[in-house]
């Protein structure tokens, strides 16, 4: 099973823009998705959601095509929707539904037989720690719980292709860890595409990453592959706090921590010679992210 995106573009009309009235939300994207967890990284507005909606068949590309095992998904119809699960970035629920009722409703929509659906719902409620609230109205749940219900509905049909748009936003650290475990277990022989701003999340669970910028895919690869480009560019240094202002304009600071003795521990992107006594650090995805999307 594989998903291929061939020269996929999506343009929106945008009257507010001066000059060209089209916004290229996704611009000529080529991507080959194979089983495993894929992390989609990119700044706000880089086109992640648009791309995911197209992969789910909710939106038609302006140009290009998306294929499931070589067949254009727009020709697959029902069959394609049967094998996908989608968690939108923003989604609503009917206010009158309880968690259980909602999942039963979606199960019916997904065409899952009644008894099978009951088992699956029980299982998911346990795995997503939602058993206690199964009889509660969804609108009364906390944000993180709502998102878990959303994850639950996406998993109901054991999808071959699971698309999750920022699934971890709003989850507390404990739930985040449980979610990662759930995903890595689930991702055997399946394609899971997740977008997130929380870089460590994909760093832990994503086998491969795609980095988006202004509607295009900048880079793809495993975390190691991607990170290797900034090998030898990440350093840590301890400097007196009064020197901070001086260095801020010289290097790109990733992180800084005030130490108790009045000095500052600095993690930054740059050259070894920038700050004296700086120690090289093993780079991580977050460093790459900041390397690719420097604060303007």
């Amino acid at each position: 099973m594989e998903i291929t995106l061939e020269h996929v573009s999506k343009y929106f009309k945008d009257k507010a823009r001066k000059g060209s009235p089209v916004k290229k939300a996704v611009d000529d994207v080529n991507l080959h998705l194979t089983p495993g967890v894929w992390g989609l990284l990119g700044a706000n507005g880089s086109g992640k959601t648009t791309l995911m909606r197209m992969v789910c068949g909710i939106m038609k590309p302006t140009a290009g095509r998306i294929c499931y095992d070589g067949v254009d998904i727009s020709q697959l119809g029902d069959f394609y929707r049967e094998v996908i699960g989608y968690l939108p970035q923003e989604f609503g629920f009917y206010p009158e539904f309880t968690v259980q009722q909602y999942l039963e409703y979606i199960a019916a929509l997904k065409g899952i037989p009644d008894t099978q659906a009951k088992h699956k719902i029980d299982e998911l409620l346990t795995r997503l720690s939602l058993e206690d609230v199964r009889k509660k109205k969804i609108i009364k749940l906390s944000g993180g719980m709502k998102r878990r219900v959303g994850i639950g509905q996406a998993l109901l049909n054991d999808p071959e292709l699971l698309v999750l748009d920022e699934p971890t936003s709003g989850l507390d650290p404990g739930e985040r860890v449980r979610f990662r475990n759930l995903l890595s277990e689930f991702a055997q022989d399946r394609i899971v595409l997740i977008s997130t701003h929380i870089v460590p999340d994909v760093e832990y669970i994503a086998a491969r990453n795609a980095i988006m910028k202004n509607g295009t895919i900048l880079q793809t690869g495993t975390t190691q592959e991607l990170v290797s480009q900034i090998h030898g560019k990440v350093f840590q240094a301890i400097i007196p706090s009064q020197e901070l202002g001086m260095w801020e304009s010289e290097v790109q600071i990733i992180n800084l921590r005030n130490e108790e003795d009045g000095s500052v521990c600095l993690r930054y992107l740059g050259r070894p010679s920038d700050i004296p006594n700086a120690a090289p650090q093993p780079p991580c995805l977050e460093d790459l992210y900041l390397y690719l999307f420097p604060k303007s």
Binding site: I58, E82, Y86, P88, G92, F93, L109, G111, Q153
Partner: peptide, 21 residues
């Protein structure tokens, strides 16, 4: 109402979420 709340995206990506729904 579905379009407005965003519930539509989920419904639409299910097997019966189009014509049948």
């Amino acid at each position: 109402c579905e379009y407005q709340t965003g519930a539509d995206d989920i419904l639409r990506s299910t097997k019966h979420g189009r014509k049948k729904l």
